[in-house]
């Protein structure tokens, strides 16, 4: 479904990604793990069209998308939930959700999407007239997920959804991610929370200093000594 081929990406003169290659098959839950600053967020920025790679290709269902602006990428069915949620703070919860279905193809089934999101997140329904900026961290993450689902993505990318959340909420977020996958949406999950990410993933890639250094199934990497030493502190 998604194929990344030898991507080199830069911020100005600084190279952040070196020949990054990986793939995500339809229906999979793939995770990209790595330390802070390894290039995980940059990778997602490239995939979503917010940053264009200097070399390499991104293919979505066989078609190159690395030169497209972000709004076109979203229209193809590839949605990103960015790090730090990036909600519209001075809009209400409901307006944030409606903005998520701005695209004409998503607008057609807006009412059903909204009902489904409210069913999955009753808290959002209770607070639908509240400003997004006034929500708690957990509620904001739910809203960010709900907003992305409103665009009816076929591939959902999440950047550190557990960041800054209490342990109980982290568990809840991972449960939701698995549920979204169970409903047929392919998921690419970027996490610093390596243990939990590997536990839910079908396959995983380890990103170190802008390069993919390891790949394997979730349980495989969870048992890998290098991963355990570097990320799990065991």
């Amino acid at each position: 479904m998604l194929e990344v081929r030898e991507i080199d990406a830069f911020y100005g003169p600084v190279q952040v990604l070196w020949e990054v290659s990986f793939r995500v098959e339809a229906g999979e839950l793939v995770t990209l793990v790595g330390a802070n600053g390894a290039g995980k967020t940059t990778t997602l920025r490239v995939l979503s069209g917010l940053l264009h790679p200097r070399r390499g290709q991104v293919l979505f269902e066989g078609k190159p998308i690395h030169h497209l602006p972000a709004h076109r990428v979203t229209d193809l069915g590839l949605a990103l939930i960015p790090e730090g949620r990036q909600l519209f703070p001075d809009m209400t919860v409901e307006e944030n959700l409606l903005t998520g279905s701005y695209l004409p193809r998503a607008r057609r089934s807006r009412a059903e999407s909204l009902a489904r999101v409210y069913q999955a997140f009753p808290r959002l329904k209770e607070r639908r007239h509240q400003l997004a900026g006034s929500l708690s961290g957990g509620e904001q993450q739910m809203l960010a997920i709900g907003r992305a689902l409103m665009s009816q993505p076929r591939l959902l990318m999440l950047d550190e959804p557990s960041l800054g959340l209490a342990p109980l909420l982290v568990k809840e977020v991972f449960r939701i991610v698995e549920e979204i996958r169970a409903q047929g949406v392919t998921v690419l999950l970027v996490e610093q929370n390596v243990t939990q990410a590997l536990a839910v993933a079908d396959r995983a890639y380890v990103l170190e200093n802008g390069r993919i250094t390891l790949e394997g199934s979730g349980p495989e990497l969870l048992g890998d000594e290098r991963v355990r030493a570097a990320y799990l502190g065991i």
């Binding site: 979503s48 069209g49 917010l50 602006p69 972000a70 709004h71 979203t74 229209d75 949605a79 990103l80 960015p82 990036q86 909600l87 519209f88 703070p89 001075d90 809009m91 307006e95 409606l98 903005t99 998520g100 701005y102 695209l103 998503a106 607008r107 907003r147 665009s151």
Partner: peptide, 25 residues
């Protein structure tokens, strides 16, 4: 309106607006 929401979204967070499929240009 849809355009109004797109305008406010672009004002509040242009990158996030792009990610919602809004052509911010």
């Amino acid at each position: 309106t849809e355009l109004g929401r797109a305008i406010r979204a672009t004002a509040q967070n242009p990158a996030a607006a792009e990610l919602q499929g809004i052509d911010t240009q």
